[in-house]
Design a protein around this nucleic acid. Sequence first.
DNA 1: AACAGCCTCAACCGCAATCGG
DNA 2: TCCGATTGCGGTTGAGGCTGT
Length: 427
Amino acid sequence: MGRHSCCYKQKLRKGLWSPEEDEKLIKHITKYGHGCWSSVPKLAGLQRCGKSCRLRWINYLRPDLKRGTFSLEEENLIIELHAVLGNRWSQIAAKLPGRTDNEIKNLWNSSIKKKLKQKGIDPNTHQPISEVIETNHEEKGSATSKNNEKKASQGSSNELMNCVDSTAVESLSEQKMSIEKPKPKPSSVLVTNMGRYPLIENNCSNMTTTPPTSTHEFFLNRFLTSHESSNSGGSNKPTDHFQDYFSFQQLNYGPPSSSSTNTGLSMNPNASSFFNPNSNSDISTTLLNTPSTRIKPSISLPSDNSLANFDNASSNSIELQSNCTFFDNNGYIHSSGCETGDFKWNEYLQTPFLLSNNATTVHNPTAQEIYGEAVKSSGISFTAEGPLNSSATWHQNQQQVPTIQAAATELYSKHFQRLPPAFGQFS
DNA sequence: AACAGCCTCAACCGCAATCGG
DNA sequence: TCCGATTGCGGTTGAGGCTGT
């Protein structure tokens, strides 16, 4: 691992962080917030550059991190999101509460990518590998696999658009543009996939009728339509074309097999049945309806507005019911105005389901202990009412959620708001 | 036990965007 | 408008752990 140029100049430490350094950083940020990162190491007494401190905090120390292994739901969601967003890890991470872009990126590169390849799917284009290669040959034949890899982040949703008329492409481009800044789109990985998404083709005429205006809306549509279709079996609703358009069920990522692997990727490598146009069970529906993959409490969002809002897009800070803002969208602590109220920061830290409420969750006791200590010594208490206070209350809230589908609908109707740290555990 | 190869993931690098003077 | 500082992001690296021989 190299060293930042700034670290060179100042002969700063690099490499792994020691518990002592963690403690210093936690104590400092808990007490003062990070402010300007470049000044943090100096103020905290660390021989690190600000960039390194920021990274350490965001990726490892901030208390709303979930840590532990990814659940099947999370993996499937990552795959879905990657199909839409490409390698925009920060945007994907924004949809996975308690997960960092780095974590997701690592998971993708070390695990999911491999699993997709094993299933005969190009992880970059989300197409069957043979067809991608074939199409690339048909095109100018200039794209190397390396290039594909590099360009995947930009092309993953473009190939989906390739099958529809230009108007539809524009409308979808707009919704895509609404959430991200487009990068130059290489054409080499685009797949002419007429027939790959038969329903897309069939519904092209509908594409311009009620295009979702944002990715939020798009996903809401998807969840709603999948929910509706799973109940009624109907497929002619106006919104169906969105489900059809991005019919990830046709990618057949799920449902997870009951085999020993934890992949959740039971894709059929057989290309002919791979994109089954008759399938009504999109991945979302699968997630919602398959008992083994039922969305678990952490994403069954109670309708309680007191829950903290992690939405990067809509909120610069997380505000609890008491209006105490204590984490911003990067998990930064802002302690101002948090002196009153009845939610104790150290209680929050000691809440069992936050720390580790299941066997698969691995938490960093050192960091948590340091937190408790840091908060005690800093005298800061954070306030909030509602379901954050105890796991018992939390479970009660779970029972209040009428159905998983309703919860998911609500989840997406909240514009993909990031879930609060208190709901950051998949049990 | 020793070694090699593989895997995971924390951390770094470099670039682009943003901000503020 | 320019320019330096700062921030954020995605790609990459490599230390350390794991597993098989």
